[in-house]
């Protein structure tokens, strides 16, 4: 996970959101806190630094335009940002008619390995990459959100616009599928 320079208490964050809903300039602390997180999320989804930077900018522009619509309903503000970022990335792939290329840190691959295999050797890692490549876009996003962004099932449900139970069920089915493939 990325280092956050700014530590905001949830109540403090809520106060900033309320202020940002009235005045755009008040959005600054939220931007400082989450820009890096969203940038790396988009980099993992695109494997392209420049594209990730562009999509980060678009994500925050959309967030700034729609912050008045944001209502905290038990999900953190960053989950809302993830949702916008995922939609922006999907829209980009649809428009450019390109396929997503996921760039995942191998040092965190053990998180998937713990669920699917006993140990993670170089050979197993290559095999895992091949298996993951066969999954569809939505499933890959689910894997990324759970094992790389370390999101809770509640947050994943919100980001993917599905229920928490559905997110859990889908992930366990996916891991079962991967286990059989490995």
């Amino acid at each position: 996970m990325e280092h956050k320079d700014l530590l905001l208490h949830p109540a403090e964050e809520l106060a900033i959101i309320t202020a940002a809903q009235k005045q755009s300039a008040a959005f600054h602390p939220l931007y400082e806190k989450y820009a890096e997180t969203i940038f790396y999320f988009l980099y993992r989804r695109t494997h392209d630094e420049d594209l990730a930077a562009d999509l980060t900018s678009q994500t925050f522009l959309k967030a700034l335009e729609n912050i008045k619509k944001f209502q905290p309903r038990g999900v953190p503000f960053v989950a809302w940002l993830y949702r916008i970022a995922a939609n922006e990335a999907n829209a980009h792939f649809r428009q450019s008619k390109t396929t997503p290329k996921l760039s995942l840190e191998s040092i965190f691959a053990h998180r998937i390995a713990e669920e699917t295999a006993d140990s993670m050797t170089e050979e197993k890692l290559a095999q895992l990459a091949t298996c993951l490549s066969t999954l569809n876009d939505a499933d890959l996003l689910l894997i990324q959100l759970r094992f790389y962004e370390e999101k809770s099932f509640k947050d994943i449900g919100f980001i993917l616009d599905i229920s928490e139970a559905n997110a859990k069920m889908r992930l366990y089915r996916l891991l079962d599928k991967l286990k059989k493939m490995l």
Binding site: E49, L104, E105, L125, L132, S133, N136
Partner: peptide, 21 residues
């Protein structure tokens, strides 16, 4: 779709100016 496992990571500081508030 392709999944790449790598430990190379871009430096966010490089984009700080481009992504200025």
């Amino acid at each position: 779709k392709k999944v790449i496992f790598t430990n190379e990571k871009p430096d966010f500081k490089k984009y700080k100016k481009r992504l200025a508030f």
